[in-house]
Write a protein that binds this DNA or RNA. Structure first.
Length: 279
DNA sequence: CATATGTCCTGAGAGC
DNA sequence: TGCTCTCAGGACATAT
């Protein structure tokens, strides 16, 4: 489930193959699943992007942005199972889109692969980009939010802190897996109401956010037991080996030794925590 | 306004 | 064995 660390890993992994390259062709890949809808349509996208140079590759929240010379940009959301690849994909059955990029006297392909097909690919103009990526839609990036912002934003909601961390308008980039890991490291119970946290707890959580996400980026993300997440070269991530609570219900807590990590459901999502060391 | 719930999608695994 | 059912959770639409 690509969250901030996985998306950041994809961006870093495709950058050198994509930046400064001219798009020769954009097309749907042969795929035996239902087709993913494109915005705008395929013909319009082709007319607007083919021949253009990709001037930059960056991440905003969990989105990948391929900036074109014209000021337009592709915005790609991997959501649950989407991958950006510059190497052979896990399989060809779930390849969705291909960008063919000019490279000296040949071409090189950038692929969007997506098993479940919930991902999206859009080509947006400058105005649409400002809307989709702007402050009205997304909060500050989880790796670039100040202590002051954490305090004021968490004080503004009575939801459980775990649920608040998943709200992309409150803070952008954290998903279900890392929310549990962050609260575990910060030793905060996920059911605590956000506006009831003390200043010291919020400060501790803010440090945990950076610690967990940066370490996960160093490990190139988490490849869960379903194996879907891969980096741009189709290699597994490594952070799953560092998970302390996620998907470890009924196992012993690696932090305090309590015999049973718990799984609860909050906002229809699984939350994992240790009832002993997360008060 | 804040918060809660339903929806999309595929493949894995459970249960009979 | 082979079928049906449930579950996983990103972002967004709709409901309360």
């Amino acid at each position: 489930m690509p969250e901030l660390p996985e998306v950041e890993t994809m961006v870093r992994g495709i950058r050198s193959a994509v930046e400064g390259k001219r798009i020769v062709e954009f097309r749907r890949a042969p795929c035996r699943c239902r087709t993913i809808s494109l915005k705008p349509g395929l013909a319009t996208i082709r007319r607007r992007c083919e021949g253009q140079t990709v001037v930059g590759v960056r991440r905003r929240a969990k989105k990948i942005i391929l900036e074109l010379a014209s000021g337009e940009a592709f915005v790609i959301e991997p959501r649950m199972t989407g991958l950006m690849l510059v190497a052979n994909p896990p399989d060809t059955a779930h390849l969705r889109f291909e960008w063919r990029l000019a490279e000296r006297n040949k071409t090189r392909s950038l692929w969007f692969w997506d098993q479940r097909g919930l991902g999206t690919v859009r080509l947006l103009d400058a105005g649409q980009l400002a809307d989709v990526l702007g402050d009205g839609r997304l909060g500050p990036d989880a790796l670039a939010i100040s202590g002051q912002e954490w305090q004021s934003r968490l004080k503004a909601t009575a939801r459980p802190v775990k649920v608040a961390l998943l709200d992309q308008k409150l803070v952008a980039g954290i998903g279900n897996l890392y929310a549990s890991e962050i609260l575990h490291l910060a030793q905060i119970n996920p059911r605590r109401r956000a506006n009831r946290l003390t200043a010291a707890e919020i400060a501790r959580m803010a440090r945990a956010v950076v610690a967990v996400l940066e370490e996960a980026i160093r490990c190139e993300g988490s490849t869960l037991s379903d194996g879907t997440y891969r980096n741009a070269l189709n290699e597994e991530g490594g952070y799953q080996n560092a998970h302390r609570v996620y998907d470890r219900a009924n196992q012993a807590c690696p932090t305090c030794g309590h015999p049973e990590i718990r799984r609860i459901v909050q906002a229809q999502r699984s939350t994992f925590f240790c009832p002993a060391c997360q008060k």
